[in-house]
Design a protein around this nucleic acid. Structure first.
Lengths: 139, 139
DNA sequence: TGTACTTTTGTAATGATTTCAAAAACGTAA
DNA sequence: TTACGTTTTTGAAATCATTACAAAAGTACA
């Protein structure tokens, strides 16, 4: 939890119990969880936790650039505590979101739109079927 | 409308009046419209048009690969009748979505996730402020 | 302690999207 | 043309993630 607290402070965010818990969860779970997944995990350790607080906190972390908000999954926004440039892959079979390394990290910056004065974020993602789900479908 | 009809047929989609109208709208308007924008435009020429039909049709076109469904805008899915590989830019000031050309079209394919058996789609998009909106904010 | 400010909480509202079953349109064979 | 099975459209109702809001709780500091 120490790490999460200092991580928040480095982004100028006051470290409340709930904020530390959310940030810590994202730093230790690279699963790109939804709001509800985070809520259900954390309400175990903070029984008074409100879903609204999870929404508020994630929004705050996102606004400060401490986390990424992925729109890869139409049904739910997913969050990522790993903010280095990388892409994502959603398997439409199992619903999992995987990290994807890029062979040319500069590509995204190089292709920045010409009519853009400021870029606040960029997302690259793939959808398809992972090897495991593809094999299962051979039945 | 001739173009839209044949376009649909080339994707194996039966060309009903409503489907032709939706497809024609997307082929002639490169504005990445939302469902409601499409509905409000087309209900002028087809007064009996139902919003559900627009949803159904867009879903059908998307499933057949005739159009793209963009998740760049959290609030609404946006649609694009231009299916060649390109990126998008959402200006958070005016809400417009612009096309972005890529200097290396092969990049996206080259970085396909290693654990993917099949890729059905890929999206790259930017968010920020366009030059016009940025200038306005200097006030 | 007291006070001002920040954060959390729970309920209610919002609004895009989906569900569903009936009505309409269509295709085709007799 | 007519009848019949299939496809498509329609509109109302339901769903559900997210937001709005105001009260309650927590925090900092004099």
């Amino acid at each position: 939890m120490i790490v999460a607290k200092e991580y928040l402070q480095s982004y100028g965010i006051r470290p409340s119990t709930q904020r530390i818990a959310v940030m810590h969860y994202l730093l230790t779970h690279r699963t790109h969880p939804t709001v509800d997944e985070i809520y259900h995990e954390l309400v175990e350790e903070i029984p008074t936790l409100s879903r609204t607080t999870v929404y508020n906190t994630l929004h705050l972390l996102y606004e400060h650039g401490a986390i990424l908000a992925l729109s890869i999954d139409e049904a739910n926004v997913r969050f990522d505590g790993y903010t280095h440039p990388h892409a994502h892959f959603l398997c439409c079979g199992c619903g999992k979101v995987y990290d994807v390394d890029l062979d040319d990290v500069a590509f995204v910056q190089r292709n920045t739109p010409k009519n853009a004065a400021t870029i606040t974020e960029a997302q690259l993602f793939y959808k398809g079927l992972c090897n495991v789900c593809s094999a299962k479908r051979q039945n």
